[in-house]
Design a protein around this nucleic acid. Structure first.
Lengths: 308, 308
DNA sequence: GTGACTATGTAGTCTGGCTTCATGGATGTA
DNA sequence: TACATCCATGAAGCCAGACTACATAGTCAC
């Protein structure tokens, strides 16, 4: 029962093909195939079976791959123990974010982490619509994902998810708007407005849908944009109103735009760090996640102070 | 962070010397030393330091050895998973027992296990006085140990302990004895008798001591024997009375010996299976322990039925 | 000091996982 | 139907890394 081989099986379970595993582990497909064969001989019963030109795991294979994860977790926990002993989080940490969260959290978090010598954080961004968050965890140590309450629960696929912050979604209005004087808005106040929406399939979409459900009337959506800056520019130009995440947007722009909280609606999104459980144990990874969480708390505190 | 190397470190933590580890793992001391050196280079700080002619672990070394145990546990749990998949507990299981428990549990348990092809149980016995039960766990998969309540708690050293049974300690009397008609006996009834004791240091000794404490008078111990058969023969010859474990002894011998329960005293011993946590995870080991536990329950049930 | 014991360094062997190259099955396309 | 393509896998050879055997150095008991 060699750990390396089990690791290969686990990769196969995640990536689905020998070639993909070989690519990811810097080996030739032949090497991977050979090791899997050895593992199968040791196990005493078939772990994979051919399906078309590829191959799929058997039930036994999946079971074994699952326990391989437990081993990987124990292993990473062990290395975390002595990383703690040396008081040093070192190594490379890769991170992928969707643009708004990155803009809000990353600059500050990386500044906070500047003191850690030997800790290198490599960041990328990716369009939230195009990306399957869970799938990204095999390529990146940390995946910043967002989800609406009650929607996907990422934990299901055996992933570790650390909540970073809960961000309310407000209604952005141009300064001169008839509702700009209100403290907060209900569904009935806004359903008749001209809306700037997000592309179909984006998670925010659900809130506008909720507004329609609550009022029984249909919202008029004229434009659909993914980029928040673009949306804000339309709001300020008086072309419509839109849902904007409170911390990520430019916020109240004196003389141009104001943000008003929605009441009576579940208008907030969760921002979480999504990780493979073994990688979540690495001290370096945990250090970065802690920095992100601290940063998120700070952002929330600053906004609370500004509002109060 | 190679698992094999960590395993070596763990063995070193348990056995205390490179030579002992080499012996136990069928390697030369040089090989062990080299691997530990590599591990230390990888870890980046000293894990061992010389002390006299031997060497001892540093704090960091101990910490790392501890997490090596977690890895070993995860590994054994993984192999148990696919052993379960194959529905087969196979392999060798070694067991050491003290004589009385072995006589009571092993024959029945091994008969119950006869159906398991490929499962080989190797048993040995060892004098309970001479043996340091926890230390034996590095040599044997299962160590049958006994303890009085409130005495050693074996779990402390990071070992897994599974309770098998609680065995009451009765007073054995010759049939013609003046107390032979009683249902149960108190400390005052027996303290004046001639006792056949156990060698100094044996756990039972505490109970006679308790009797002395309760009554304030001193018990007269004329002989001290370790072997239960020997003790029984003395009882039956009318040479004294003694504490005998209820299930392990020959029991009531019509016309020769009767057993009377003690009241008002904590007169019982725990019989437990003691194991290294990783070995406790092996399906084969668990199967044997389960058989032992079933057997123990059966023994207790039979006695309860006979008494009722 | 001497002998017995410890750990460890050096040189050489050999196992085991890798790469390269080649084969065979499955799929989609001309 | 034939061909190109993409998969997994087999055979041969290479090479790192873990081992053994032997030698060395430090520590303890007498």
């Amino acid at each position: 029962m060699d750990v390396q081989r089990l690791e290969l099986l686990r990769e196969l379970a995640e990536r689905g093909s020998v070639t993909a595993v070989a690519l990811a582990t810097h080996r030739t497909p032949s090497a991977v195939s050979q090791q899997l064969k050895v593992l199968e001989r040791e196990a005493g019963l078939p772990l994979t079976k051919r399906s078309g030109r590829g191959l799929v795991l058997t039930d036994a294979g999946r079971a074994l791959a699952a326990s391989a994860t437990d081993i990987a977790v124990a292993l990473e926990r062990a290395t975390a123990v002595w990383d703690t002993f040396r008081n040093r989080a070192t190594g490379d940490v890769s991170l992928v974010t969707f643009p708004t969260a990155g803009q809000m959290l990353l600059p500050g978090a990386l500044q906070d982490l500047a003191g850690h010598d030997g800790l290198a954080v490599h960041c990328t961004d990716m369009d939230p619509e195009l990306s399957d968050f869970p799938a990204l965890t095999s390529e990146y140590d940390i995946v910043l994902a967002h989800s609406m309450r009650g929607q996907h629960t990422w934990g299901g696929r055996g992933l570790t998810s650390v909540p970073l912050m809960t961000e309310p979604l407000d209604v952005g209005l141009p300064t001169g708007h008839r509702l700009a004087g209100r403290v907060s808005l209900g569904a009935g106040d806004v359903v008749g407005e001209t809306w700037i929406g997000v592309p179909v399939g984006y998670p925010f979409g659900r809130i506008l849908h909720d507004i329609e459900l609550q009022t029984g009337s249909r919202a008029r959506v004229t434009q659909r944009f993914a980029d928040m800056r673009l949306i804000e520019s339309f709001i300020m130009a008086g072309l419509g109103i839109a849902l904007v995440p409170r911390y990520t947007s430019s916020g109240d722009q004196p003389g141009r735009m104001v943000l008003k909280p929605l009441r009576g609606l579940d208008a907030e999104r969760q921002i979480v760090a999504l990780m493979r459980p073994d990688r979540a144990e690495r001290l370096a990874v945990r250090t970065v996640v802690d920095a992100l969480r601290a940063r998120a708390a700070q952002v929330q505190a600053e906004h609370a102070a500004a509002a109060g």
